[in-house]
Design a protein around this nucleic acid. Structure first.
Lengths: 201, 201
DNA sequence: AAAAAAATAGAACAAAAGTTTCTTTTTGGG
DNA sequence: CCCAAAAAGAAACTTTTGTTCTATTTTTTT
């Protein structure tokens, strides 16, 4: 392996790390300092190699403005985590958002997602357990058979949708539990459809 | 609400979006153009407000180098997804990596993690199903009772560790399956410990 | 309506950052 | 060991970019 190729990879990794740490790319001179390169043209030499290899893309006429075009590195989709579900105001109101979590955009895309922490063991038979985080697509209706987040008695519950009329029937995926039947007069509402789940062991 | 406060939020959102889209922050003049501000000092005026509110942090002496310090926005931890598990060379060799996926650092941190796609239904009773992605902490040994990824007959399997000697005993969390007993002569190895799981519905 | 505060503009400036051209040193294969 | 190619350096140059200072307009408050 040629000496320059080793260095090229080191430079590439440094850039990646720098962006991860700082949120913006390093300048030519900062790269040079890192590798004790005494001339900015030396850095330029490597940067052009990386550009030719398609590993970075650089916006001419913009300073400190190149990005790592790592095809294999997926983009993040920041999804809000909902803390308390207050029925009254919009659920995605700022005061209800506990934080934004990055999810792989390849798996979960779209801007109308949110994350909710699951309480209880009513859905263990589909792999959703107490303490898991479900990823929910915000929508006000859903198809029969889909797993939904429904707002009932001012609390969000995750259940499988069995029927919507005359009553809303929610089916826990836990053989020891009974279906929940909610009459229209109780004004139940569907907050969204569960599209994924994250669990920690 | 004051007029400036609305604008302040718009500017803030624009910056966030710009960084998401481009991977580097906008310049003062780019922000100004977006909002038809005819003077860079106007942008400066808003930028300072954002700084004072702690919403962005700016590195003086560095151009185009501020970051959104959204406390609520979690950082991403890029974790490699392993495709084919080839026993021979290092599992985390570049050729085995299918891509890097961003995970919430708050949930999964550390640089020695990898993601693996699960095949089969041997762990459904702990919520790990066919097609799920397990998040694995790379390690060569584990405690009894932990869920591990073991390499057996050149294939990676996810099971609960029951015993390590004299034989390696792997327990499927599926009552219709039998324990797998692997003799030392078969040279089984532990690739890591399962710390999480992501499922898509 | 007047006064105070907030928001915007203009222009000039200094520093940072990418590029270029030419030269020199170091490597690596024959 | 020699020579071409690769790698590194020096210095000057052009743009971009953030800052500053002052003046003006618009909003908000009293």
């Amino acid at each position: 392996m040629k000496k320059g190729d080793i260095r090229l990879e080191e430079v590439y990794n440094y850039i990646k790390q720098f962006i991860d740490d700082n949120g913006f790319p390093p300048s030519v001179r900062e790269i040079g300092e890192q590798f004790s390169m005494k001339s900015t043209s030396t850095v330029h030499y490597y940067l052009e190699k990386l550009r030719n290899k398609g590993l970075i893309s650089q916006n001419t006429s913009r300073r400190r403005a190149f990005t790592v075009t790592n095809k294999s590195r997926g983009r993040a989709n920041f999804v809000p985590m909902i803390g308390t579900v207050s029925a009254g105001k919009g659920m995605l109101a700022t005061e209800n958002i506990e934080g934004e979590f990055p999810l792989p955009q390849d798996m979960f895309n779209g801007s109308d997602l949110f994350i909710l922490c699951v309480e209880g063991d009513s859905m263990t038979e589909v792999g959703i357990s107490d303490g898991d985080y479900v990823i929910v697509h915000s929508q006000s209706s859903a198809e029969i058979g889909e797993i939904v987040v429904a707002l009932w008695q001012d609390k969000a519950t995750v259940k499988r949708l069995r029927a919507t009329s005359p009553n809303l029937v929610l089916h826990p995926e836990n053989s020891s539990m009974e279906d929940i039947v909610i009459e229209p007069s109780d004004e139940p509402s569907i907050l969204g459809k569960v599209v994924g789940c994250i669990k920690k062991f």
